[in-house]
Nucleic acid binder design. Structure first.
Lengths: 345, 345
DNA sequence: CCCCATTATACTCAAACTGAGCATAGCGAA
DNA sequence: TTCGCTATGCTCAGTTTGAGTATAATGGGG
């Protein structure tokens, strides 16, 4: 009995219990989606491709394509090929994020065709001006998630728009104590209400909450009940194709988490940089300002960087030493990362 | 232009560039696989299903099944249904691990049929003796990964078998400096040679390294070149069906990482427990011994638990206070977990 | 019934780490 | 040359951490 037969047998076994499962393999398509992230001029940007639609004019989406097992041995190979074909970009660092598969999150209701399973990838790159994109353009990720931009303090959209709407949504839940956790608590935790602390990593949770509350355009597009109930629904960030904003939310959350325990921040940096440039890049990703002196102590102390010996002039003040990433840390420490905690400026 | 059409257009666009991609959607099947983990008597166990094969007698595998988008709206729903059908178990906590899709890792070479994409899930549960399994049984995960069991110090198999073999494999790499990182360095980092520290989270890296070196049975099964070159290949742990050992490795790594920053450990505990029982469970997962007094200070200080008021007698000494998980921490802190670091006993 | 081995729990202390601020260095423009 | 500005160095108190010592409360054996 070959391994293939064992699988078959197990399928059959289950099919007997539930005959409808037999047709399970029909019409599944694997979509590969890339959130390609860079930081330019202290702005975290993502590579988007704009497609015309005859309704709204144009919608942004991530580079994506279908996975062909005949063409590519691995997902990552397929992804790199797609991205290169669509944008001309050769990906460096890439990691898998999550596989999304719920029906109804990918296209308009009534849309027929195969069920699409989206595998989201995160890629990090520098924005070298030398590479010119064949298609697509870099846009700030805060464009799609304005409420995530805490670089100039708590974003206004929270106070003016999101919080009031969410309070309405919370109030609409009456007595349904069947929920494992109340809307109120979920909103409080996700959006840091009533003294709760803002967790910059909960990007996906926040987006999903807004989706569930029917407050993002994609919820309308997907024909969600909750979305229909708003008479004056605001536009919260720029929507995207399919479930691409969800994938981007996952990507942002992942980068924000990951730079703390893996030196991935250097994927976004040029070879040589000053410590303050490094700090600005971290802040572009994470949001809050960091204490400059302590940041420098931390980064140097962790052995993440080494001075090149050069300095950068015209900083507006004293010249700054240039540093480079010390790749050897990867061989020395199990989990080197920029262990940053917010502090006073 | 509907969203579906936008997708179509993008596919067409790419197809023009590369005609072979047109057939990409053909023959892809989604497999859902669950690594269901519990801890019984300080032993981390995983639920496995043994299937007969006419060659080797029997092989273990994880509960799995095909995802049917017609049957289930979400992967998790499908997974729960499969697991329940195959084992009688109702899953509690479950999270997606990773989606594996490389050809050649799933069945024997020459095996035809649809390309299988495996979505791995991690589920955590208590082993309640009340539930009797319809199929499958609990087996220690160290059965499949003996080199991961550091509870009684450095496992012998490393010194006696794995290290010598890996050194041979390292030596076989001659002058191919094209590798981004040498075999030697990879082995050193993964297996803590030459003074490097053992990172208990690198379970997958270690398994993949052994696979690549042709040292695990699955590499032989998959017809890997590297596997053929060993004349006296040892058996390293018990092999599994398909890529299930890889999924289990991912699961172990994930649990080990996650208990440090999320209170998932309590998914494995009964409602009431003593702090030492909690510590033993953490140690079953992580390996090294923890400093008892500091562990207690940590767990209590983080507000993860509260005393029930009861005590447990017959501990062999002074009675131990019983505690329960304080679910409210989830609402109080952004990332509560058992921030353990190894220490003296 | 008391002693003692055993486990649980409380408390102490030094070293390391962190958050925050002050101080000094070195460039460029006025 | 002075002043404004950014870079970089250094200090210090409060907190956390690793590790040990001390005390409490059972149960079993004499």
């Amino acid at each position: 009995m070959s391994y293939g037969e064992v699988r078959e047998r197990a399928n059959r076994m289950a099919s007997e219990a539930d005959p409808a499962t037999v047709s399970s393999a029909a019409g599944v398509e694997i979509g590969l989606n890339a959130a390609i992230v860079a930081v330019t001029d202290n702005e975290p940007v993502v590579l988007v491709i704009r497609s015309e639609t005859d309704k709204a004019g144009a919608t942004d989406g991530l580079p994506f394509g279908t996975f062909s097992p005949l063409q590519h041995r691995t997902f990552e190979g397929g992804l790199r090929a797609w991205v290169h074909r669509q944008t001309g970009l050769e990906l460096g660092y890439a990691e898998q994020l999550y596989t999304f598969g719920d029906r109804g999150r990918h296209a308009q209701p009534g849309d027929v065709g195969p069920h699409v399973v989206s595998i989201g990838y995160l890629a990090l790159t520098q924005t070298r001006p030398t590479v010119d994109l064949q298609q697509g353009s870099w846009r700030s990720w805060y464009h799609y998630f304005p409420w995530e931009d805490w670089r100039r303090g708590r974003p206004e959209i929270l106070e003016t728009t999101i919080e009031p709407k969410l309070r309405e949504w919370v109030a609409a839940q009456r007595g349904s104590t069947s929920q494992p956790i109340s809307r109120q608590e979920r909103v409080r935790i996700c959006f840091a209400l009533e003294g709760a602390a803002w967790d910059e990593e909960k990007v996906l949770d926040r987006y999903e909450l807004l989706y569930e509350a029917g407050l993002v355009d994609e919820a309308v597009r997907d024909g969600r009940e909750a979305a229909r109930q708003w008479t004056d629904r605001p536009r919260l960030g720029v929507p995207m194709h399919f479930d691409h904003r969800r994938i981007l939310a996952t990507a942002i959350g992942r980068v924000r988490a990951k730079i703390k325990y893996r030196p991935v921040i250097f994927e976004l940096m040029p070879d040589d940089f000053t410590l303050f440039e490094l700090q600005r890049t971290v802040e572009a990703i994470l949001g809050p300002h960091l204490h400059k002196q302590n940041f420098r102590r931390l980064v140097e102390g962790a052995g993440l960087v080494e001075p090149t010996g050069e300095v950068k002039m015209r900083t507006g003040g004293r010249p700054a030493k240039l540093y480079r990433f010390r790749r050897e840390v990867l061989l020395e420490r199990p989990a080197p990362g920029v262990r940053v905690k917010p502090g006073k400026v």
